[in-house]
Design a protein around this nucleic acid. Sequence first.
DNA 1: ACTCCACAGGAATTGAGGGGTG
DNA 2: CACCCCTCAATTCCTGTGGAGT
Length: 397
Amino acid sequence: MSKSFSDHSDIFSDETVLYEDWTPEELPEREEELDRLHDALAPATRGGAPHNTFVYGKTGQGKTVGVTYKLDDLQAYAEETGDLDLTVIDYSCAKDNTSYQVASNLVGELTGAKPRGYDLKTVFDMLYEELQEIGGTVVIVLDEIDSIGSDADILYELPRARANGHIEDMWVSVIGISNDFDFRGDLSPKVKDTLCEEEIHFAPYDADQLQSILERRAEKAFQADVLHPDVPQLAAAFAAKDKGSARQAIRYLYKAGELAANNGYDEVVPEHVREAEEIIERRNIEKGIRDLTVQDHLCLVAVTALEARDEAPARTREVYGEYKRVTEIADSDSIALRRVRDHLQELDLAGVVDGQTRHSGVKGGQHYVWGLDADYDTVVDVLRSVDRISDALARRT
DNA sequence: ACTCCACAGGAATTGAGGGGTG
DNA sequence: CACCCCTCAATTCCTGTGGAGT
């Protein structure tokens, strides 16, 4: 018999609390960091410019939420007192990898028309013009700034706009949020000096903190007494073991709840969390693979083929040999060894392939050996579902 | 303790493809 | 139309690395 919407289950009371974009109204695990953010923004209330601030820490540590939270506070103050003309510009640099793109997209956000084809200087001029138009105190939040890499001039230009005479009678401050620990170290000294007036580190949550975050959420999201007492703890433990990300922990909890609800249980039990973890893990691998380019896929097929023959982990050169064979069978273009190295690194970043450094002294110093990082069957499954690759793989076996 | 090799990965360059101005 | 800007995958060239083997 098919399911009927009228027998929906009573597991959740408000599942939107478990959505990605749900913002908690309290962050007790981050009090210290929030206080430091407060101090960094405080000059605005005294007629000055908020300090340029560098916020860093791994994903799912409450960085973005914390910054939004504190800026909402400041905004509320501005409205209440009326003596602060505050504008907050929120922008995620996730898809940009140069200062040019960020500047161009910021102009696009402000005017609705993203400039293209102009040189960097012209785009900056457009940006200054827009900012001048806004006036008052402008706080620009640049989320995921690590994705712009070393081309970080914008992080110098924006905070210095007034000092360099591009804008007048107003303040522009930048809050940069980074997932990457090392990003700060890669910045040029002039950028570092400008951006990092204040630095706030969000250390990974430990299992206990994750658990209390989950328990607070669960109370709002689930009906009373439907959660087995071990559920939040187990979800927290899974997440803590991996990255310590609250986002991930909440995902496990939500999925576990869904599994219970969709299968007619009236309680969420630890087994649901285990199942949820597996499902989400698999989904991550799928996403990791699907987002890759053709050449990435071909490299992955090579590694997978080596794995199938039990020849992994294999050296880069061996992977390259296999790669050449794969491209021949698939009748596609092949690229140089140097480039395959880069693609293998990308696969490693995506979490599909694992590269480890080895040394073999006089027979050739440092090198990598490559193998699959994800489950073999899952990888093969997903590869088969990517049309252009499945043929090549099918003909191999 | 020194050497030495194959590899890693940075730098410079190219060419196609997105777009611009005057 | 001629000329210019930015981006991105890819190529070529080249330097730095570090421990097994002497």
